[in-house]
Nucleic acid binder design. Sequence first.
DNA 1: CGTAGCTTTGATGTAGGTCAAGAAATGTGG
DNA 2: CCACATTTCTTGACCTACATCAAAGCTACG
Lengths: 250, 250
Amino acid sequence: MKELTTVLSVQDSPFARKLSAFVSLTHEDLVVMSDLYRRRRHFAVGSDMIHQGQTGQCAYVLASGWASSYKILVDGTRQIVDFQIPGDFIGLRSILFRTSDHNVEPITPVQASEVQQRDLLDAFTRTPRLATAVLWAASRDEAMVVEHLVDLGRRSASVRMAHFLLELGSRLRLVGLANRDGYDCPLSQYLLADALGLSAVHVNRVLRELRETGLVTFQRGRVVFDDYDALVEFAGFDRDYLDQEGPLLT
Amino acid sequence: MKELTTVLSVQDSPFARKLSAFVSLTHEDLVVMSDLYRRRRHFAVGSDMIHQGQTGQCAYVLASGWASSYKILVDGTRQIVDFQIPGDFIGLRSILFRTSDHNVEPITPVQASEVQQRDLLDAFTRTPRLATAVLWAASRDEAMVVEHLVDLGRRSASVRMAHFLLELGSRLRLVGLANRDGYDCPLSQYLLADALGLSAVHVNRVLRELRETGLVTFQRGRVVFDDYDALVEFAGFDRDYLDQEGPLLT
DNA sequence: CGTAGCTTTGATGTAGGTCAAGAAATGTGG
DNA sequence: CCACATTTCTTGACCTACATCAAAGCTACG
């Protein structure tokens, strides 16, 4: 009975919901998953979750809150690679590699489940389906990083911002934290600047421009899509590049 | 006897060599791998290997030649996400997702082994170690994409170019196609421009600058490191972020 | 209810883009 | 092995998107 309860609650987690979009997880898979991350941890806003260059790190699955993963360059500037929202795997690379190549830091207070390297690799041998599912999730994350890279390489500041806000919206909708109207967003203009490769003051100007042209309004922690369709058009956003139409592997 | 020969030749392929850096592959793993890609294919320079938006694509393991993966934007510009060199997996995302989110095109004539989705997923259930190894390889690719993203977001054009040439050198050295002095490189300045988010003429200026300051010379298809240490210093290149010190999983 | 972090705005500077056009390479067919 | 075509490289003149610097108005939370 106890095991059943655990499995049910795991099944309901944002992480399982995400993986289920790709493979239909069996009861067995869910049992292995619930074994995987039993240790719940809390992180306050100034504390590092993962630190660049350090070895023997854990990974986490984000249960609640927002985090950012970033790299610090020699000249002290930083580039935010991605934001993590509930359901996201954090620091997979930091356990697959010996030393972590990036930092992860909470943006809001965070609840996360710790995943040990050994447990993860053991889980893969126990249920290869889970390995496939994790590979899929990792590839989906890579797809987002790629899209972000295209942002930085070839899109103008305002299109870049528009695209970013739309993509974040799609991701949040997948885990039930956004809808067509908009979403709550704890990112400061400084964080946006470091993610989009812009200066904070230019971020401000771009946001004003988008607001004044009636596309999106991002003010006091909330993103509101004033004209979703026009924004999609303006950003050249591919509506369904993140969407899945049901599990590939049954 | 025949099987043994196959296994031996697979063991020698750049792909197996790369995976071995992470997990020690057993005889069994190698047998499964040799089953995996028996179909050899050839691609000429103008032919697409993978096409954005198309469904039911194959993946490949590059045996010889160079390829580029890129995205085309609505305004017609393109962003090259990565170059593929021998040993690289191509189009993993295009089989894990229903439709491919990017294009892959040969830069030189290419020899590649086709990998079918079903075969790959079957192979994972047969030997979970292989799944782990592929996950590792995918993560390593993601690490490179991330580094490329940092390039575009926060590095100046000349540092960006320096960093790019060094990284490419490291990757080529892993498969025996480069050494400390330099390497042969079939990339035109247009390709470099599309990869680095610059214009072709600025690429030219930057290459001249790097040549005149005695750091690197890239001329007529060959990259020569004139002063490797100074270049590493100039680029803020982390020498060993791609290096592995032997298998993690034995 | 003060102070530290955010946001907003203006003025000025610069890295890198665009346009244009000539010089080398490289490839192709005879 | 040479003429011709095509791509690739190189350089100069000019322009624009975004950075930097500076300073004032918010907002929130201890």
